[in-house]
Design a binder for these strands. Structure first.
Length: 756
DNA sequence: GCGTAACCTGTTTTT
DNA sequence: CAGGTTACGC
């Protein structure tokens, strides 16, 4: 038997080797579905000798795609590079880029992110003289997005009496008109939003049979990860692509469907069975990840849901620990208790920071735990939240690049036309937009003949801007992306403006821009990228989200992220924060029973990330919008079978067991009990201790027994003779520090705290 | 058109 | 609390 098949169970092996015909793998959490998927691809390449060119593998996140590619590469080597493997959005963007002309788009079309979309909607609402409180950009976009994801075009939307009636009763009768205008404006700007990448791919395949045929023949084997999260559009495209060869394998878990809000339709799993009568269904029910207690507790949670497929997830792992509750009086204390619990478990079990994850429902909840971890000097990384590419200075540069590549990108134009200040205000821009509309010409043409539309000094300013952009566009033909981008950054004056800002924020903004330019350089140097144009770079990063960004893996860090971002990952210890009614489940989700079930699945996903232990924390009082609010524990806590819950009604007190940990543990206990009165304050401030500061551990000293508690320090004294001394030390964050140092540090932290 | 200060208002998840 | 918007004076 081939080596890679040996470490699979029978069901998994079935999933790997039966590559012909349609196949659906329903896999419980931790049952190794990614493993099956990767091995299936390996099997196709190695055993069936399929050309990688004929394999299409689709995932939802770039992270998952990269992970899968590197796993495959480990087994088959270079060959893995030629597989069409990526997210739905990135693969479809790639296809659309080559076929753009057939839909009337330029090949270097822009991709609007949701901010661009909202900004455009806002502009349209304003132009139509509608109330932007009734037509909130986010609400309108959600409606448009929902339609596109169900493959409803703007034209079909306005002609459908059901949608009309819906909007009438929601007192938003102009919704359809906004939709029409939005689509038109995107098209004229040569831009597609996220949903267009799917919608237009579907349109392309249905209007151009020859194009569809080309890709049908290319993708002889299709694999889909996280199938439960596909929406109608994705499903329809998938069906089209697989229509000839029908070698399509989907992997999913209905219990982990958490993207219905984005249009994911769980019925795809049912339809799939109907559509392929000879469908092979494989169930993976054995969990290899978690302890019995975690698997069973998760099962009791998900069993509260009515809509679910029969599945019995089980494990042969040890029973393990019960789920533990952490109750805090307020959100700040919650952060501290979680941080000290992490610290305690880390030192007691000799774990790495990488073994811990803190999960929460909303990004804004990260604040309290961040503060607590910072105070304890424990390094952490945040996944999600404000992305590098979302920063103002980065978006500004990118807008320049986008506009040079696509002169009709209206959203990019609005960003940069007066940046740095050129004396062209919003009023002038509006005038040009209106002129473009009235004469039915692209905005760029208006700008090129600006003297016909605007007066004197402003026309001159616009003219100058146009000349600058034209000169950049010339470079585009001759130079690579890096050279063009650096030139644009300098010549536009953006870099200069940032450089002159000597504040700390200004400095970091300047560095960020440098980092972006470095990123472009790497893109150019990278031999994997055949197309080194600026357009190719822009397309790639338009679909990169904050979840995918590279972070230094060198230092061990605690991971902080939303539950949505954690899918597909696993950790030894999982902390779920903010387990309160009105937060999780989110009150906005409670409109219907189905939505509550999605929140419950979210909780299920969170719990099943854990290999060893789960903590759920909640606060009795939480600050929201600067005002405190009383909270009560989440209904989800009640739903866990008490048999799997650590019955601890007292406030959680973090204690380190003394027998293992010596004096350092005593210190932690003392601090928590606030018995630090006899320690004298010292004349140093927090900033005197840099992250690299090891104070007592200097050159010529090393700790010989890196074990928590007691160690021996070897020291060379001035005469050069070696002397040994027994010391107490403590693993504080990533550092091994002498106890005396930690005492000072903790004392300072407490002093700081009293001040505020 | 620009800069500043006072004012207002909103709760979610992501490609 | 934080970001976006309005009002006002130059």
């Amino acid at each position: 038997m081939t080596a890679y098949l040996k470490n699979l169970n029978e069901a998994q092996r079935e999933g790997v080797i039966n590559v012909e015909g349609p196949c659906m793998i329903i896999a419980g959490a931790g049952a190794g579905k990614t493993r099956v998927l990767t091995y299936r691809i390996v099997h196709l390449l190695k055993e069936k000798e399929i050309d990688p060119f004929h394999i299409l593998a689709l995932t939802f996140t770039n992270k998952a795609a990269n992970e899968m590619r590197s796993r495959i590469e480990k087994v088959v080597g270079q060959e893995a590079r030629n597989i069409w493997l990526g997210t739905f959005h990135s693969i479809f963007a790639r296809i659309l880029r080559t076929e753009a002309d057939k839909l009337g788009y330029p090949p270097n079309f822009s991709i609007y992110d949701s901010n661009d979309s909202k900004s455009l909607i806002k502009a349209i609402v304003k132009e139509m003289n509608l109330d932007d409180k009734i037509y909130k950009p986010s609400v309108v976009l959600a409606r448009i997005s929902g339609a596109k994801n169900r493959l409803v075009s703007a034209h079909e939307y306005v002609n459908n009496p059901i949608y009309q009636a819906d909007d009438e009763s929601a007192r938003k009768p102009e919704m359809g008109t906004i939709f029409m205008k939005y689509v038109e404006r995107c098209f004229k700007a040569g831009a597609m939003d996220f949903d267009d990448l799917l919608f237009n791919t579907y349109k392309l395949f249905n209007q151009h049979v020859d194009v569809l045929y080309k890709y049908q023949e290319r993708f002889k084997y299709i694999l889909i990860d996280e199938f439960q999260d596909t929406n109608v559009a994705q499903y329809a495209i998938l069906k089209d692509l697989a229509a000839i060869h029908k070698n399509v394998c989907v992997v999913g878990d209905d219990a982990q469907s958490i993207y219905a809000f984005r249009g994911a339709d769980i019925r795809n799993i049912l339809n799939f069975e109907k559509h392929y009568p000879n469908l092979q269904i494989i169930k993976l029910e054995q969990n290899y990840r978690s302890t019995k207690n975690i698997v069973n507790a998760a099962n009791t949670i998900i069993n509260h849901n009515k809509a679910q497929f029969k599945k019995a997830v089980w494990t042969s792992n040890e029973a393990g620990e019960l789920i533990e509750l952490i109750r805090a009086t307020n959100d700040l204390e919650e952060g501290k208790l979680v941080a000290s619990s992490i610290f305690e478990n880390k030192v007691n079990h000799h774990l790495s920071n990488n073994d811990f994850v803190v999960l929460y429902r909303t990004n804004s909840q990260s604040r309290t735990i961040e503060e607590a971890l910072r105070k304890m000097d424990i390094p952490y990384r945040i996944v999600g939240g404000m992305s590098f590419y979302q920063r103002k200075e980065i978006k500004d540069i990118l807008a320049y690049l986008r506009f040079v590549v696509n002169h009709n990108d209206e959203e990019a134009l609005k960003r940069i036309i007066n940046l740095p200040k050129r004396g062209i205000g919003p009023t002038s821009v509006d005038k040009m937009v209106v002129a473009a509309f009235e004469h039915d010409i692209p905005i760029w043409e208006v700008m090129c003949n600006v003297e016909k539309f605007l007066s004197g000094s402003i026309a001159n300013a616009v003219d100058e801007f146009v000349h600058m952009v034209k000169s950049f566009a010339v470079d585009l033909q001759q130079k690579d992306a890096y050279e063009v981008a650096t030139h644009i950054a300098r010549r536009s004056g953006l870099l200069k403006e940032l450089h002159e800002d000597k504040t700390i924020e200004g400095l970091s903004r300047y560095e960020n821009v440098q980092e972006l330019l470095n990123g472009i350089k790497q893109f150019v140097v990278n031999t994997d990228n055949k197309d080194k144009s600026l357009g190719a770079f822009l397309q790639e990063i338009a679909l990169v989200t904050s979840m995918d960004e590279a972070s230094d893996e060198a230092t061990e860090k605690i991971t902080l992220m939303t539950i949505h971002a954690t899918k597909g990952l696993e950790f030894e210890y999982v902390y779920i924060m903010g387990m309160e009614e009105d937060l999780f489940p989110s009150p906005l989700m409670l409109n219907s029973r189905a939505d509550l079930e999605e929140e419950r699945r979210l909780f299920y996903v969170a719990v099943t990330r854990a290999k060893r232990k789960v903590f759920c924390s909640y606060a009795l009082n939480r600050y929201r919008f600067g005002r405190p609010k009383n909270c009560k524990p989440s209904r989800f806590i009640e739903e866990i079978d008490p048999a799997y819950l650590h019955s601890n009604e007292k406030y959680h007190r973090s204690t380190v067991s003394q027998k293992n940990t010596g004096h350092a543990a005593q210190l932690v206990n003392d601090v928590q009990k606030k018995q630090y009165k006899n320690l004298k304050p010292i004349n140093k401030t927090l900033s005197d201790f840099q992250p690299t500061d090891t104070t007592h551990l200097k050159e010529g000293m090393k700790v010989e027994h890196p074990k928590f508690g007691v160690g021996t320090v070897t020291k060379l004294d001035t005469s050069g003779t070696e002397k040994k001394a027994k010391v107490d030390f403590i693993n504080f964050g990533e550092k091994t520090l002498l106890l005396s140092f930690v005492k000072l540090r903790v004392l300072d932290a407490l002093r700081e705290e009293r001040k505020t």
